[in-house]
């Protein structure tokens, strides 16, 4: 238990470090949001308007960067992430609240399905090494080497657009309003098919390969031979002796990818104009929208940390060797 507490302490420290870096990096990028708005308006804004924009965004005061930093920390503690510049005057937390569910639902589900299917297939392929199952390997190598945006574009060309069965962009039909109605849900599901399938194709092969390789390694362990010699059923040897041990590295990989759900699918959301966090980050970057960027980075950081904590817990549960005696 004290081990877990120490881990939590470590993650709190990491979170603080990440928040600090998160604060300083956007401010180190040249240019500011007003400047980028002026650029967008192509010089059609007079200097008074520019000044009022600075006042509006709260960038007129000559606060030192450190007092800004402490103010930022204080706001964070109150759950105030500031106002988004691009979606002014919507608070960042609200913007995130709109986009997070899309990303978490689509990418989260896809990640879990991909892990479960990929690991399961990897177990079988690794266990039946040397047979027909090895034919899966060149296929997975090929699939995992496809650049994601290319696969996405191909999918859109083939299955969406004119006469295609699936919509090419967005999270739902513009005609329906988000609510718990059949119309909305079916529309959302239809919109998620192409993004989900493309993610699945590219990410699952990674799980298959890593699990297969671990299975092959573990199969050569002495305790597997002992299990066979004990006359246990093939299934029991495969599941409770081989797969149970081979799973361990994959579990930490899985926790990592859970952490990256929030921010790791930027490409997918851009390609499919999916209304998730990645797409929002893309927009925020273009508009130098500090508060939104910071908000998104914060969410990504925290989810990676939480995922790491989950991985630690999972490891404690799955591998007795990591437990301290006490």
């Amino acid at each position: 238990m004290s081990y877990l507490l120490r881990r939590i302490g470590f993650y709190l420290f990491t979170a603080w470090a990440a928040i600090t870096i998160n604060f300083f990096i956007p401010r180190a990028i040249p240019g500011d949001p007003v400047q980028s708005m002026v650029n967008r308006a192509q010089g059609q804004i007079d200097s008074n308007a520019i000044h009022s924009l600075y006042v509006l965004f709260g960038m007129d005061t000559d606060q030192s960067i450190f007092s800004q930093y402490f103010e930022y920390l204080g706001q964070l503690l109150r759950g105030d992430l500031g106002l988004s510049f691009t979606f002014f005057p919507t608070p960042v937390s609200e913007v995130l609240g709109d986009s997070l569910p899309w990303t978490i639902a689509l990418v989260g589900l896809t990640t879990i399905v991909s892990f479960v299917l990929g690991t399961g297939l990897g177990v079988l392929v690794g266990w039946r090494r040397g047979g027909w199952a090895d034919l899966v390997l060149p296929v997975t190598t090929f699939l995992s080497s496809i650049p994601y945006f290319w696969l996405g574009l191909i999918a859109i060309t083939l299955f969406a657009g004119d006469g295609g069965a699936f919509p090419s962009s967005g999270g739902y039909d513009p005609g329906v309003t988000p609510s718990f109605t059949w119309d909305f849900i079916s529309s959302a599901v239809l919109h998620s098919v192409l993004p989900a399938v493309t993610i699945l194709i590219t990410s699952m092969s990674g799980w298959i390969m890593s699990m297969r390789n671990m299975m092959v390694t573990v199969s050569q362990e002495d305790y597997i031979t002992v299990a066979h010699a004990k006359g246990l059923s093939e299934r029991r040897v495969m599941v409770s002796y081989a797969a149970r041990n081979a799973l361990l590295p994959n579990v930490s990989g899985f926790a990592m990818s859970l952490g990256l759900i929030v921010g790791g699918t930027l490409l997918m959301e851009i390609v499919f104009s999916y209304p998730g966090v990645g797409y929002e980050l893309f927009q925020a970057l273009g508009a130098k929208d500090y508060p939104l960027m910071q908000g998104i980075f914060l969410v990504i950081t925290l989810s990676v940390l939480v995922a790491n904590l989950l991985a630690d817990v999972a490891y404690l549960a799955l591998d007795p060797r990591t437990r301290r005696e006490g």
């Binding site: 002495d222 305790y223 002992v226 010699a229 006359g231 041990n245 007795p320």
Partner: peptide, 27 residues
């Protein structure tokens, strides 16, 4: 296979070379 499984360990058991690695570490 089933006959072999039945015979294994109940009639002929084996103590292997690797004392360290003969036990499944997670059980």
């Amino acid at each position: 296979r089933p006959q072999l499984r039945k015979l294994r360990w109940s009639e002929i058991s084996i103590v292997f070379q690797g004392a360290m690695n003969s036990l499944n570490p997670v059980h």
